[in-house]
């Protein structure tokens, strides 16, 4: 029988894969894609919770997470376009203007 723990295990693993991508890649586009991986693993947890507790509330939360993910990727890609125009690169290690 498929329980909530199975959903949790899979989404923890996927979350770590996404976090690895955020930590190790230097390309801004890859970092954005890894963030999407992490948000989707959260969605997987919530759908497991919804199924397990027979509840509607986690599904509403999934819709709200979807909105946040869409806004995040739109703003992030706009930023990437502007950085490419100004600095000619999307390598996040080269953006040091704000470093104290």
């Amino acid at each position: 029988m498929l329980g909530f723990n199975d959903y949790l295990l899979v989404s923890v693993i996927l979350f770590f894969v996404g976090a690895l991508g955020v930590l190790f890649r230097r390309n801004l586009i890859y970092i954005l894609m890894s963030l999407e991986l992490m948000l989707n693993s959260i969605n997987l947890t919530l759908i497991g919770l919804a199924k397990y507790s027979n509840d509607t509330n986690p599904q509403v939360l999934i819709l709200l997470i979807l909105v946040v993910a869409a806004v995040e990727v739109a703003v992030g890609l706009g930023l990437a376009i502007n950085l490419m125009r100004v600095k000619k690169t999307v390598d996040v290690d080269l953006f040091k203007s704000l470093k104290g």
Binding site: L64, V67, V68, V71, A74, V75, G78, I81
Partner: peptide, 17 residues
């Protein structure tokens, strides 16, 4: 969430200008 979407649209437009 709808306000967030609106802010996101405006912000993305400003960033990409």
């Amino acid at each position: 969430a709808s306000i967030l979407l609106l802010v996101g649209v405006v912000l993305a437009f400003i960033f990409a200008k």
